Computed example of a mutant assay.
Amino acid sequence: MTPRMNITPVHTCIVVGASSGFGQIIAQAYVTEFFQTRPDHALFLVLVGRQADALAVTATQCHSRVPVSPTTPGGQLAVECVSGLHLDDLDNLDPHLDRLFAVAKHAIDFFPRDSNSAVPLQLDSCTMINNAGTLGDISLKVAQYEWKAMRDFLDINLVSYTACCTRFLRHITRERYPTQRTLVNISSLLAVQTFPYWGFYATAKAARDSLTKVIAQEEDAAYTKTLNYAPGPLDTSMQKIIRETMGDAQQRELYTDMHQQGNLVPMEQSARKLAQLVLSKQFESGSHIDYFDE
């Protein structure tokens, strides 16, 4: 009887918007949680953003999170950076996405040939976490909007997001990644609860949530899972912009007090909760889960 050959499963995780801020922390936290729960597996991490130098920094930080030697069975991490991806340039979005998913298609090629050579690698599952997005103008009421500004905002925050989702569903298939594919939208409380002056941001977040829920209804839940994750009020550079430009005095005071009293959510804490949630798979496809939910 021929002995069964051991195979190291390779999981791919694509983080869109990984060059700075919360996206950068998500990538690091995902590596940490992945190897804590799957120490004998391999992870191919695809970091997506505009600036090559910033993505390289994220890649170095992610490599430092691997708890075992990459030459031992399992515990392997390969990182590929896809820079120059401008989601606001819709005329050139298709070739950018072609390049991104070509990388995901050849995931195993990015592992060192002399690493774990006795145990073959096999693609297993794929997750895409889309953190890319902008804040919009929160100094204005809807009555003050110029429609062209809203169009430009939605091109970046909704149209390009839709394109990413569509390409993910087309290119990440059961034939290549047989176990599961997971699509994560970084959402917000603003997607489900509205506040004044948040017309730009809330419109995009609510639409993204709805699209992700539609995908959950259209696809086989045994293979495709989608998640809308609201990370809480994070201590980021975006929070500084909110405190400085928010048109509503009451909200501006609220966010200022949260910052001064240390009540903003640490990015690492929220990112680790997201990673744990995704890796556990213990969520209903299409659901909206907030950092503060039990």
Rank of each mutant, 00 (worst) to 15 (best):
P3V: 05
T12Y: 04
V15P: 10
A18K: 08
G23N: 13
I26H: 10
P39K: 09
P39N: 08
A42T: 03
A42N: 10
F44A: 11
F44C: 13
Q51I: 00
L55Y: 02
S64T: 10
V66L: 12
V68D: 06
G74I: 02
G75A: 09
D89E: 12
D94F: 12
A102I: 01
A104G: 13
A107E: 01
S115R: 08
L123P: 13
N130P: 15
N131R: 05
A132H: 00
D137A: 01
D137I: 02
V142W: 01
Q144Y: 11
E146C: 14
E146H: 11
K148C: 11
M150Q: 03
M150C: 06
Y161V: 14
A163V: 10
F168H: 06
L169V: 12
H171P: 12
I172K: 13
T179C: 09
T179L: 02
N185T: 04
S187K: 09
L189T: 13
L190M: 15
F195A: 08
P196E: 02
W198V: 01
A204Q: 03
T212M: 06
I215W: 06
Q217Y: 04
D220V: 11
A222L: 02
Y223W: 07
T224D: 01
T224K: 00
N228L: 07
P233G: 04
M238D: 03
I241P: 04
I242M: 08
R252V: 00
Q260K: 03
G262M: 02
G262F: 09
N263R: 05
V265N: 02
P266G: 14
M267T: 09
Q269T: 15
L274D: 07
V278W: 10
K281A: 05
F283V: 05
S285F: 11
G286P: 13
E294N: 05
